[in-house]
């Protein structure tokens, strides 16, 4: 079995606004194997967010090939991409991106809705993950009733509930105090130890140094 889960070959991404085109990524080659913990490090404007979108199947590259778990992602329709995201990727965002009108349990169960899991099973799985992350007391709370650290743990629970191959975290500690940030870092270490691929995208060298491998990106190119 092939251990390379994420394989980017000569990836380029150009944004076109009217007559002005902007080359966000150039000639990116990157392979990430099962069980790796990778930090993609770069200042703002370096193209790291674009790279995250491509790895996360939120957008498609202009040039090059992207293979995720042995499957070419390039020619897929938006609905097929949605299914790929649901199967393989767990997103963790800087701003948590929880649904304000849903309870904690319903937020965590949301990806399972799109997978077609029935109501009872969804709730059961969501509660199980939340309990593992120490959020048993907050099942019925809304996200605005939680602290930033708690919200991010709910978001991580949501990313884990589908048991994805890859955890893709975009500045996961950016909106957290140092203590909560440390908890999140700790959590990522545990997840990686359990065999999950963790990819963090950050401009923060302190966060990046927790990863086993650091990929630096400047002006749309990998520099190391």
């Amino acid at each position: 079995m092939n251990d390379i889960i994420i394989k980017l070959q000569n990836i380029g991404k150009t944004y076109q606004t009217g007559k002005i085109s902007f080359e966000a990524l150039r000639n990116i080659n990157l392979e990430i194997k099962r069980g790796e913990y990778v930090a993609i490090l770069g200042p703002s404007g370096s193209g790291k967010s674009t790279l995250m979108q491509i790895i996360g199947c939120l957008s498609t590259p202009t040039t090059g090939n992207y293979t995720l778990a042995g499957k070419e992602v390039g020619g897929l329709s938006s609905d097929e991409l949605a299914k790929v995201r649901n199967l393989y990727i767990g997103f963790v965002f800087q701003k948590f991106n929880l649904m304000p009108h849903l309870t904690v349990v319903d937020n965590v169960a949301l990806p399972l809705v799109y997978r077609g899991v029935n109501d009872n099973e969804r709730t059961l799985l969501a509660k199980e993950i939340l309990a593992q992350l120490g959020l048993s007391n907050h099942f019925e709370h809304r996200s605005n009733e939680l602290s930033g650290g708690q919200q991010q743990r709910v978001a991580i629970a949501r990313a884990l509930v589908t048991n994805p191959e890859v955890i893709l975290a975009d500045e996961p500690t950016g909106n957290l105090d140092s203590k909560s940030g440390a908890e999140v870092v700790n959590l990522f270490n545990q997840l990686n130890a359990q065999g999950k691929i963790v990819v963090t995208i950050t401009h923060d060298t302190d966060l990046a140094k927790h990863a086993k491998r650091v990929v630096e990106i400047h002006d749309g190119k990998i520099s190391n």
């Binding site: 996360g56 939120l58 938006s78 609905d79 949605a82 299914k83 995201r85 649901n86 199967l87 997103f91 965002f93 991106n97 649904m99 949301l110 990806p111 809705v113 799109y114 997978r115 949501r158 589908t162």
Partner: peptide, 16 residues
């Protein structure tokens, strides 16, 4: 819009 984006990131298809 942002919530729709989140839903899509989590795997919501157009039909959803």
């Amino acid at each position: 819009t942002q919530q729709i984006g989140i839903q899509m990131a989590l795997g919501a298809t157009k039909k959803h």
